[in-house]
Amino acid sequence: MITITAVIRAKAGHEVVMRDALVAVAAHVAANEPETIGFFISQSEEDPCVFTTYERFADKAAMDRHNGSAVVATFFGIAKPILDGEVILVTSKEVSATVR
Rank of each mutant, 00 (worst) to 15 (best):
M1H: 08
I2P: 00
I2S: 01
T3W: 02
A6Y: 02
I8S: 00
I8C: 03
I8M: 04
R9H: 08
R9F: 05
A10N: 04
G13D: 12
G13V: 00
G13W: 07
G13Q: 10
H14D: 13
H14L: 07
H14W: 09
E15L: 02
V16L: 14
V16T: 15
V17S: 11
R19C: 09
R19K: 14
D20R: 11
D20W: 07
A21P: 02
A21M: 00
L22R: 01
V23F: 12
V23N: 07
V25S: 01
A27R: 04
A27Q: 09
H28K: 12
V29D: 01
A30Q: 13
A30I: 06
A31G: 06
A31F: 00
E33W: 02
E35M: 12
E35L: 12
T36A: 03
I37F: 12
G38L: 11
F40E: 14
F40C: 11
I41A: 03
S42M: 12
S42L: 13
S42R: 07
S42F: 08
S44Y: 05
E46M: 11
D47Y: 05
D47Q: 04
P48I: 03
P48Y: 01
P48E: 08
P48W: 00
C49M: 04
V50P: 01
V50L: 08
F51W: 00
T52S: 09
T52Q: 09
T52K: 07
Y54K: 10
Y54S: 12
Y54H: 15
E55P: 05
E55K: 07
F57N: 02
A58W: 02
A58T: 13
A58L: 15
D59H: 11
D59I: 10
D59S: 11
K60W: 13
K60S: 14
A61W: 02
A62I: 06
M63C: 10
R65M: 07
H66L: 00
H66N: 08
H66R: 00
S69P: 04
S69W: 05
A70C: 06
V71F: 08
V72F: 03
A73Q: 13
A73K: 14
A73R: 12
T74Y: 05
T74N: 11
T74C: 10
F75H: 03
I78Q: 06
A79M: 03
A79R: 01
K80H: 13
K80E: 14
K80D: 14
P81D: 01
I82P: 04
L83Y: 09
D84L: 09
G85D: 04
G85W: 01
E86P: 01
V87R: 01
V87A: 02
V87E: 04
I88S: 13
I88N: 10
I88D: 13
I88P: 05
L89C: 11
L89T: 11
L89I: 11
T91H: 12
T91M: 13
T91G: 10
T91W: 03
S92Q: 08
K93H: 15
K93W: 10
E94T: 15
E94C: 15
V95W: 06
S96Y: 14
A97Y: 05
A97F: 05
T98S: 12
T98P: 05
T98V: 15
R100M: 14
